[in-house]
Each structure stands twice: as C-alpha cells, then as structure tokens.
C-alpha cells in the first residue's frame, strides 16, 4: 500500500515513532526498533555522569535504517532548546530535532510560547523541527508560521499512559492544520495509538508504554500493528459521515425520480 508520510523531505513508511528512554537495558533497543518498524527514533542529550558509566545510545541505533531525532529535553526555555539542538547537529546527529521545552516539573507540560520561539530560530537555521506542544490551535498555527515540519500535540500528560484525553483538541488540529499532526505522549495502549490514527493523525510517538511493558519488543510490535490498523481504517473511509443518520425516506430522492 502506498501511503508514505513525507516530513522534512524524507519519505517514511512507518507512522510509529519510537522514544528510547526508560528502557530496562539499552541492549534491548535494537530488537525493539526492529519489531516496531520505527524509522524515526528520539534520543536525548545529557551531561555525562562519570560515576554512572552511561553508554552512548547511538551504539544501539542503526543510522542506516533510522532517522535520529534528538530532543531538547532539559531545556526550560527557547534559548536552551536552541543550544541543545545546535550541539546535537554539530555532533553529527542530523538536522531533525524534537523541541521539548518544559518548565513545569509537576505535569511536564510543554511551554508552547517558548516552543514557538525555538521553532522559528531553528527552522531558520535549516533544522527539520518537530515541536512537542500542548494542543492549542492558535499555538499550532504559530508553529506552522514559524516553519515547523509537523506539530506534535500531547495526547495526555507525559508518562500518564492515559490515552487521548486531548482528543477533541487534537481533532481540531487535524482538521485545521495543514502539516502532519503527530500525537506524542500519553499513549498507554496500542488501542490509543489506533484511535489517534483513525482520527487522522499522521503518526504517533510512543516511549513509556513500550519501555515499561513486561515484554518491550512484543509491545513494540503491538503498537506497530495498531498504528497500521488505525491508518488503514482512516483511509478505508471514515464512518464519521453517518454522524447524521440517513433519513428514512431520502431528502434528495426526488432528484433521481
């Protein structure tokens, strides 16, 4: 089936983006990537903790099959996000970036305003910018204006695994925004991912639900299937049209008499 997703000039077959945080062991990651079919993988930039002996995650990601998407997690404002993005690119991580500006430590909700500022700067420097945002139509429009390659509204607050609590707001974005809408954060079950895709989301980004499952590679595959099912359902013809039930005798029947 020919239904590619084009972002930043790259053509993607898979509409499941994978986050690599919170996994019990990095060694699991190649298998998870394979089972998920993901072609876009997010990573984070951190200061080395010399006591902890952390491994470079890039050792576990095959750049031939995956687009690397560093996120700007840790940034509390636009300036910090911009710095992180530039460092990641200069270090050879490619020009894709997920902007994540969070200065709320309780709910980890993104700061749309700083995100818009960072998007404008980085898009101007040739980055392929995918901003993580709180679903808000005005902010989404500003992100489009600022040069984002897609918008990534949260489905529910990060890590909550509560599914699509932001469903109605996301629906509005899908209807009104021309760019791909990628639901990020809060998708706890494959059925949530399917729901997002059925609504018309271009893709979903999943991390916690896979990383913290009993069997992460298995859950990765489940999400992959759910994303495909949701997408196929969307393409096969939304049953939403019959939100208004057909009248018992057709109102326009007279035209065919």
């Amino acid at each position: 089936m020919n239904d590619p997703l084009v972002i930043g000039g790259r053509t993607l077959e898979s509409r499941l983006f994978l986050g690599t945080g919170k996994f019990p062991a990095n060694a699991m990651i190649p298998e998870v990537i394979r089972r998920s079919g993901a072609q876009v993988v997010t990573v984070a930039l951190r200061r080395v903790d010399f006591e902890a002996q952390e491994e470079n995650i890039l050792n576990y990601i095959d750049r031939k099959n995956c687009i690397l998407m560093p996120n700007t997690s840790g940034a509390r404002n636009a300036a910090e996000a911009v710095k992180i993005a530039r460092i990641a690119r200069a270090a050879g991580c490619g020009n894709w970036v997920k902007i994540e500006v969070i200065n709320d430590n309780r709910y980890l909700l993104p700061d749309n305003y700083e995100t818009i500022k960072a998007t404008e700067i980085l898009a101007g420097e040739g980055f392929v910018v995918l901003p993580y945002m709180s679903p808000d139509l005005a902010a989404a429009r500003a992100l489009v204006e600022a040069g984002a390659a897609a918008v990534m509204p949260l489905g529910s607050p990060i890590g909550s695994n509560r599914g699509l609590k932001m469903k109605e707001m996301i629906r509005i974005l899908i209807e009104e925004i021309e760019l791909p809408v990628i639901v990020d954060a809060g998708l706890g079950r494959p059925s949530h991912a399917a729901e997002a895709m059925e609504m018309g989301a271009a893709a979903v980004l999943v991390n916690t639900a896979i990383a913290t499952a009993e069997d992460p590679p298995g859950m990765a595959e489940a999400f992959s299937l759910a994303v495909r099912a949701g997408r196929l359902s969307y393409l096969a013809g939304s049953p939403e049209v019959s939100r208004y039930a057909r009248a018992s005798s057709p109102l326009t029947g007279f035209l065919r008499d």
């Binding site: 208004y244 039930a245 057909r246 009248a247 057709p250 109102l251 326009t252």
Partner: peptide, 12 residues
C-alpha cells in the same frame, strides 16, 4: 454522491 448526507445535515 454525498448529497443525501449533505441534505440531512443541512436540514438539521
């Protein structure tokens, strides 16, 4: 081909 759906919605 969607006139009937449009009609139901328009009437409402």
């Amino acid at each position: 081909e969607y006139l009937e759906e449009m009609a139901v919605k328009a009437r409402a």
